[in-house]
Amino acid sequence: MERRWLVYPYHIWMLLFTVVPLALIFYFAFTVKGTYAFTLENIQQAASPVYLKVLWHSVWLAAVSTFACFIIGYPMAMILATCRVKYRNMLVVITIIPMWMNFLLRTYAWMTLLEKKGLINTVLSFFNIAPLQLLYTDGAVLLGMVYNFLPFMILPIYSVLMKMDRSLLEAAGDLGADAWTSFRRVTFPLSLPGVYAGMLMVFMPAVTTFVISRLLGGGQYMLIGNVIEQQFLAIGDWNFGSALSVFMMILIIISMALLSRYNKNGNGGMLL
């Protein structure tokens, strides 16, 4: 009882940096620029075909990169979880280390690797392969997303796999299941909470990114994050920018609701 004051900083934090900004975004989204008048126009404009197309492209790219992260990340999480304790910590650190470096720097590094006179094309030219257009393509954006967000997929899956009861696998073996069957029937279903958490943690930043698409996509592919950024910084139409953000938020809430439907008993993987 006497320690209740300990939660006050948390409440103040939540109020100042979550509730108030959210309220402001909703306020801007539903008012006419420069006035207090209520309007649905911003939302209607956000739902117009041009922006829906951008949104669709963003969701599509984010979904593909999430799937790619899953395909690459799951085996890596398995390796981490099953390798000898001696190496495990080192491998985990290696997985996390890139996250300690500045995100922008890592993305810039890819630019110099991918450009026409970059490292990859220089190596290719030794084998007499004509320079490929690698930078400023959809592929480059995908690569940037997968590279940057992969740890967010690996870590939740790894933490769930680590907590799994090994004796279940032994039991499966005793009952005659081979390695594949016990993975399919025991390990994978038990790791699903981690997979869902990982998918959410990759999908969210991927769908809202504007830096990766601008640097590696060369501004050729406008994602919803770029549109929102432009509204706020270049155009100065905070109301429409907020409406787009609200649209975005609804999308994220829906995807979270969908995932949590499949994740009813899974609290294990949720790191957030």
Partner: peptide
């Protein structure tokens, strides 16, 4: 009238 430019630009970019 600035949003008109934004709209045109968005059309180009998408």
């Amino acid at each position: 009238n600035l949003p008109k430019y934004d709209k045109a630009w968005t059309k180009v970019k998408v």
